[in-house]
Design a protein around this nucleic acid. Structure first.
Length: 269
DNA sequence: AACGGAACCTGAAAGC
DNA sequence: TGCTTTCAGGTTCCGT
């Protein structure tokens, strides 16, 4: 279940594997992942084309082809791009395959929540255009953050709104709030009016993203929910375990239908 | 307009 | 052991 850090790693990997390469073989079996064009049209868009650039904004990846064609990729909850050998057979849950002269890149997605969207003539994608600033790519300071936080909804839900900031999801929002010692049920408006808290939050978002990228960097990501994965986070998924700062047991609550983990002592209202 | 809840999917873990 | 329930790092749609 990828958020900004995992999508950033996927983007760097795709650059390594595909940039400047010609797509010699493209397999796109019909699935609900594919949008914006039929599987045949999508294959025609990609096959034989050279990959000119690969960009990321929030949780979206954009593959720019020679000419003006674009392919957008969103990993949903369980999507990942991996590299295999060209002679390797289709993997379990393989939804797309892009081969270059030397390697074979596969998109795997068991739950089918991800998307591959074709924009053959470079048409803008609404979901991409609607994204707020990306904390990693665009930078984030307290003034900018304060200007984007408002309203009576919780700060946790505001941080997960992709039009407020692009790329934070359930984990990064919880982790950043813990680092900034901010209670997840405070309203966005209250946080915005507290300059010290906004400063702490801007730094916490930056730190949490950087920490996660550094820890997960590599050619194949394992998401925490997968069997055998260990949990590198400070509070996410750790209800009942001691707060890494004050040792009081962390708690789990539900906000907007999603689990939030936090420390009742460290994170003040 | 805003907000909660369900839906879209599959699989692993926990509960009984 | 085996069946049932719950939960999962995302987004979108629908009804109140």
């Amino acid at each position: 279940m990828p958020e900004l850090p995992e999508v950033e790693i996927a983007t760097r990997n795709l650059r390594d594997w595909l940039s400047g390469e010609r797509l010699e073989r493209v397999d796109l079996p019909a699935s609900r992942i594919l949008r914006g064009a039929s599987p045949d049209e999508l294959s025609a868009l990609l096959k034989g084309r050279r990959v000119a650039a690969i960009e990321r904004r929030g949780k979206w990846i954009r593959i720019r082809l020679d000419g003006d064609g674009l392919l957008y990729s969103h990993l949903g909850m369980t999507g990942k791009w991996v590299r295999r050998d060209r002679k390797d057979p289709a993997q379990r849950y393989e939804r797309a395959r892009l081969d270059t002269r030397s390697s074979s890149v596969r998109y795997l997605d068991p739950r089918l929540f991800g998307r591959l969207v074709a924009a053959p003539r470079g048409e803008p994608l609404d979901a991409w255009e609607a994204l707020g600033p990306d904390p990693l790519a665009d930078g984030l300071d307290a003034r900018k953050l304060a200007a984007r936080l408002s309203g009576r909804r919780s700060i946790k839900e505001a941080l997960m709104d992709q039009s407020v900031l692009a790329g934070l999801g359930n984990i990064q929002a919880a982790e950043a709030l813990w680092r900034a010692r901010i209670h997840p049920q405070l309203t966005a408006e209250r946080v915005a009016r507290d300059p010290a808290r906004v400063r702490a939050l801007a730094r916490a978002i930056h730190d949490s993203i950087g920490y996660t990228i550094a820890g997960e960097l590599g050619p194949e990501i394992t998401y925490v929910e997968e069997p055998g994965a260990d949990n590198p986070f400070r509070v996410y998924g750790k209800a009942g375990q001691p707060c890494p700062r004050c040792k009081r047991p962390l708690v789990r609550i539900v906000q907007g239908g999603r689990s939030t983990f936090y420390c009742r002592r460290c994170q003040k209202r």
